Simulated assay, not measured.
Amino acid sequence: MTERPPAAPGTRNLITDVPGLKVGQAHDAAARTGVTVILPDDRAVAGCDVRGGGPGTRETDALAPENLVDAIDAIVLSGGSVYGLAAADGVVGWLGAQGRGYGLVARPGVPPSPVVPAAILYDVANGGDRNWGEEPPYRHLGRAAVTAAGLDFDLGTAGAGYGAMAGGLKGGTGSASIVSADGYTVGAVVAVNSFGSVVAPGGRTFWAAPFELDAEFGGLGAAGLAAGPDDWGLAKADPAQRMNTTIACVATDAILTPAQAKRVAIMAQDGLARAIRPIHAPFDGDVVFALSTGRRPLGEAADFTVARLGTLAADCLARAVARGVHAATAWPGVRAWSDL
């Protein structure tokens, strides 16, 4: 009997290792903000789980399994707090011009309605130039990101994580992937702007260290993982400012129903708990989307496979958090992980 190869990261170790998926990013250096767009080749089943106490979202209700629309056209992660929700407008406009979107009945002269769920993080107090008057840059950033979509994209100070902070360190955009022994691909992309710390107190060891593969975020091992009951290390010093929220998307090529995608999103949230301490606080707005590109059937043991996919997604998300902060570059007055 031929043994299957062990699970391992995909070729790029990015969410775009999931077949049928691209990612595009754009940023505004002056405003210290950016946008990440997850773009499936075809309409894709999706689910969503919201855990943070202060979320900012768009079209998440459309993803409920009991509702009419059972697939999405893109997912947007954006900086900019409430202003950043406009990034989805740029994506919707571009998709509609391509003839992509939902239409109950196709009729001449009636455009389709692209379904583009979105989530935002708070980066508007990071020292960037916000003198944009009535024209915040997010619609343009959304269009720039979706038109740039491809298989490769930058980690760290890029995309939706461009202006982010991870506790007391520079945050960023991270991604990771895994291909299971039986051929399912799972990936994650995340913009890390957490109140909590991604490293254990007193050192530079990532909380996600037990899940690291191939020294992808420093290879320090897990020996430095320890914390007292109320010791949060490099968490943000002033939670009252509410400058938080970690937003993410996990994806798989497995064929999922909307209810199964929702379950994967719920399970994937545990990846944030493995990588950030504390997480899901009243002043966080943590949101995780789950997306299926529908290339591989679940097989006879469907529920068991969904449980496996959710666990793999959580591990990928934990790794992606660490990779995003590991790759982030410092700003004046703001330390990066590499400065520890």
Rank of each mutant, 00 (worst) to 15 (best):
A149R: 01
G34K: 10
A62H: 02
R242M: 15
G84W: 03
L340E: 13
A208F: 09
G163S: 12
P136A: 13
A281N: 07
A176N: 11
S175G: 12
G150W: 13
L291T: 04
G56A: 05
L213M: 13
D253V: 09
A268P: 12
I247N: 14
D49G: 05
L256Q: 05
A191T: 06
V190I: 12
A273P: 11
A227S: 14
A8M: 10
G47E: 02
A88T: 04
E216Q: 12
A181D: 15
P108W: 05
L14N: 11
G187Q: 07
A26T: 00
G79C: 04
A273Y: 13
A290Q: 01
N244I: 08
G218I: 02
E134G: 10
I178V: 15
E216M: 08
N193S: 11
R323C: 03
D230C: 02
A145F: 03
V82P: 09
A275C: 09
A261Y: 02
P137F: 06
G172N: 05
R319D: 08
A251H: 08
V334L: 05
M1D: 14
P229L: 02
A320G: 09
T157L: 04
T60E: 12
P6F: 01
A281S: 14
D214W: 00
G174I: 05
G90S: 05
G99H: 01
V37K: 03
E59C: 03
A62N: 00
A281E: 11
A327C: 01
V69N: 07
L340P: 01
F289E: 04
R12Q: 12
V76C: 01
L63Y: 03
T293E: 07
R274G: 06
D339C: 07
W132Y: 12
A268S: 15
Q260E: 11
T305E: 13
A158Q: 01
L95A: 00
E300A: 15
V50F: 11
A145T: 09
A318T: 01
